[in-house]
Amino acid sequence: MAEMKILPAGDRALVADFGNVISEDVNRKVNALKKTLLAEKVAGVREMIPTYRSLLVEYNPAVISMQELSRRIEATAIKWDGATAETEKKRVLEIPCCYGGKYGEDLAGLAELTGLSEQEIIDIHAGTEYRVYMLGFLPGFVYLGGMDERIAAPRLSSPRVSIPAGSVGIGGGQTGVYPMASPGGWRLIGRTPVQFYDPAAENPVLCEAGDYIRFVPVPPGEYERLKKEGAPWASL
């Protein structure tokens, strides 16, 4: 079991760190710590950034001292009594995805690379439930865990200058969705009409850490219809 350490990240942030690991257990603890601290509404806390392995807590030292905040984090962590899991209901988002063709230009190449057929790749990719470990890099960019290593493949040797929003890709052992148009080196296998980032929306970002995602294959006609009508997404 990873031990939590509370370390200073400058004079107005502390990081509750569980070590250099990617594990679902650690990530659940990070998430639970964030939710508990959020519910406690600790005065002087102005930001929390959960990652795979740590929770960064930014505070105003004029309102709460480092020592006091450190005690609050410690006390919150003790309450979990070891193996406390996420208390909230599991949220699974079903994300329609149109695989291959012009929607996923690298699917054919990935088939060649892995020795699988395109359909096998789709079945594997859509047959897995992915945990959202954290968000970062871009607004709404999800770091997903749990991809089957049979469909892992190195990033493209020369990254694309612009990848359209909604592109679903594979980079190394990871899969993810580009929330906005961006340069990038992941192999594109499909595209979703769901907006992972919409600055005009009340909740600009679709997912939060601790959610789960399942991709649901849809044909091009369905993709275009959802894109036009505004894609709904199902929460199970």
Binding site: G10, R12, D17, V21, I22, I49, T51, Y52, L56
Partner: peptide, 11 residues
């Protein structure tokens, strides 16, 4: 290289 963690202004 580390497993990603949070960043503050001034890191």
């Amino acid at each position: 290289d580390i497993v990603s963690d949070g960043i503050v202004f001034g890191a």
